[in-house]
């Protein structure tokens, strides 16, 4: 069924290893046959773009996130990678995604701008 295939794909594409996640997914033979058209490189690239769009939503959603990235890109990227791995992407609006990221950073010891977090 379409919805089963979509569930497997969205979980895979928002995971660290989309190809492995798709191989593990429980799907009907018909859905597996559709997936055989999907080239591994294309799936990997799509997963990277999904991540990139999330990263951009965070930077666009709050000027302070962008400032953090510009000031200390290494720690920002480190925080983002862990956040992306641990928190499924449920926010569409940039400000909401930036807020969720910031809350997660506070709870996990990645404070980019201490003392100003409550403004988010």
């Amino acid at each position: 069924m379409l919805i089963d295939l979509q569930r497997a794909l969205v979980r895979a594409l928002t995971s660290a290893d989309p190809i492995a996640a798709l191989r593990r997914a429980r799907l009907s033979q018909a859905d597996r046959a559709l997936l055989r058209h999907a080239d591994d490189d294309g799936v990997r690239l799509t997963g990277l773009i999904v991540q990139k769009l999330r990263f951009e939503r965070i930077c666009r959603g709050d000027d302070r996130m962008e400032a953090w990235f510009e000031r200390d890109g290494k720690s920002f990227v480190q925080a983002f990678k862990r956040y992306n791995k641990e928190v499924p992407p449920r926010e569409f609006f940039p400000r909401a995604e930036a807020g969720a990221f910031w809350q997660w950073c506070r709870a996990n010891g990645f404070a980019g701008e201490p003392g100003r977090a409550d403004d988010v």
């Binding site: 069924m1 295939l5 969205v10 979980r11 928002t14 999904v50 769009l53 939503r57 992407p89």
Partner: peptide, 20 residues
């Protein structure tokens, strides 16, 4: 499609070319 079960890919993802 960009979303299912509340998960947001944001990027429009491909559909199977099926009647469904």
């Amino acid at each position: 499609w960009t979303t299912v079960d509340g998960l947001q890919a944001v990027l429009p993802l491909p559909l199977p070319l099926t009647r469904e």
